[in-house]
Design a protein around this nucleic acid. Structure first.
Length: 427
RNA sequence: GCGGACGUCGCAUAGCCUGGUAUCGCGCCGGAUUUGAAAUCCGGUGACCUUGUGUCGCGGGAGUUCAAAUCUCUCCGUCCGCGCCA
């Protein structure tokens, strides 16, 4: 959510941003109109409250001196004030609620370096890492590989849960754990603090961190308490300091989160998304930073550097993409995606997303830090380190051998008792 | 799950019984004093707006009242005891 001051003093900046995104200004104008109306109603209500407070003081004074007659007189004079105040109070409450529910829908201000473009076709290449492997055979897709090695059981998962769930078995399940442990060690050695968050959140906190449409399409609602299962540890870790004033000495706060991620994935998805590429549940190691505004752009690059060095160390080929205006969501001001090469399907596909959300989440969450001039909103940043299911797909496609077995990346071998090849599961 | 206590500005704490201007301390910011620092003293230190002798704010919501931190109901959370439990 953008600061309301932005609408009052710099609406031109928001309008220019909407132009870059190719969306109409209607909502901006409506927020400004509602804000003016709210200020007016609020002022009128304040004036009435002021009258009432003055009268109440008069009554208190009269009662103190024992002048009951005077007290009764004032009481009669202000008899109708309460009803008027209630009426105006309801009006101003409605105005500000409408204003802010609309304000929640207005996207963040994009950074200047975000390329202009209508859709994902407008994304630009930021850099390329590693090389495509040369295979002396025709590389298989990850779906073929997990099938022939019995590493994934989709039908039985569908039977007991539903589609897009999976059993992960044998050596692939072991490598999944190795990958988690490796990524955590990699980041904790860079002074990121490991945090295991709650896997469910309440509605209020969740509204602070996500696009409102996500409640319909992404999150599971757990009854009877009405909690929402987290779609990523970004959400609890970012909302952790909700309603707090953070000591500046704590900033920047670097965290590495681990959690299962639950996603409803409502809507149709293409053939290429079958198997374990797009699933309802996976594990993700996530980087989170809470920072002062002046530091956030430098820290955004730090997050990307961590990703690059982590994925380089796995010996994988991938490219980094600078997401364009038309492909950016509501929350981020700038976003890099890391797209790994999948030789089986001959395309680059998204495995990491690295965002600077500036003060958009912290305005909603009322998350500030203390400065000499008062409290100021912090900036929040997040980046995948590894989403295990997708990282597994990249590893098995790129490291596959002619017999369908897979070489384990050297850095993961110590986490698997020195094993070098993923063996098939025999059932 | 049952019973009890509690929730007050960044932290800590008084006010609640008996309704009538948000208390003391710490930390922080500014000023005075000083060569500088410490110490001391003074002032400030939640949010909002049309900046006023203004309004709101005491975990959230509702109610009673001219008036609620204070009384009532309800929800949330914390702590203690009991029960259950990996």
């Amino acid at each position: 959510m953008l600061d309301i001051k932005m609408f009052r003093d710099h609406a031109d900046i928001i309008r220019a941003d909407h132009d870059k995104r190719g969306i109409l200004h209607d909502n901006i104008d409506e927020v400004i109109r509602l804000d003016d109306a709210w200020k007016k109603a609020r002022y009128d209500a304040d004036q009435l409250r002021r009258q009432r407070n003055e009268a109440a003081r008069g009554i208190a004074e009269a009662k103190k001196t024992g002048d009951d007659e005077e007290a009764e007189k004032i009481l009669a004079q202000v008899a109708t004030l309460g009803a008027q105040i209630d009426e105006l109070g309801v009006e101003s409450d409605n105005l500000i609620k409408t204003r802010d529910s609309l304000r929640m829908k207005i996207p963040n201000i994009l950074h200047d370096s975000v390329p202009i473009g209508e859709d994902e076709g407008g994304n630009t290449q930021h850099s390329k890492h590693g090389e495509k492997q040369n295979y002396s055979f025709s590389p298989k897709t990850h779906n073929e590989l997990v099938d022939m090695n019995n590493w994934v059981d989709l039908p039985r998962a569908a039977k007991i849960a539903g589609s897009r769930f999976y059993f992960l078995k044998g050596d692939l399940a072991r490598m999944e754990l190795a990958l988690q442990q490796y990524a955590i060690d990699f980041l904790t050695s860079r002074e990121y603090t490991l945090v295991q968050p709650p896997m469910m959140m309440n509605r209020k906190a969740y509204e602070g961190v996500t696009d409102l449409d996500d409640f319909e399409t992404v999150m599971y609602n757990v009854q009877p308490e009405g909690f929402y299962t987290i779609a990523t540890s970004e959400h609890p870790l970012t909302a952790m300091f909700m309603d707090e004033v953070i000591e500046p000495s704590m900033l920047p706060l670097r965290m590495v989160g681990i959690s299962p991620c639950f996603r409803r994935e409502v809507g149709a998805h293409g053939q290429s998304d079958k198997g374990i590429w797009r699933v309802h549940q996976f594990t993700k190691i996530e980087q989170i930073i809470i920072s002062k505004p002046d530091d956030s752009w430098e820290l955004h690059e730090e997050l990307l550097t961590n990703c690059v060095e982590l994925w380089n160390s796995l010996d994988l080929h991938y490219e980094i993409v600078n997401i364009c205006t038309g492909d950016m969501g509501t929350v981020a001001a700038k976003k890099y995606d890391l797209e790994a090469w999948l030789p089986g399907v001959e395309s680059y596909k998204e495995v990491v997303s690295c965002s600077n959300c500036t003060d958009y989440q912290s305005n909603r969450l009322r998350m500030r830090y203390r400065t000499a001039d008062g409290n100021e909103a912090v900036h929040t940043l997040n980046s995948t380190a590894v989403a295990t299911s997708r990282a597994l797909v990249a590893i098995i496609e790129q490291n596959q051998m002619e017999d369908g077995l897979v070489q384990i990346p050297a850095v993961l071998q110590p986490y698997m008792q020195g094993q070098t090849i993923l063996q098939s599961c025999n059932w």
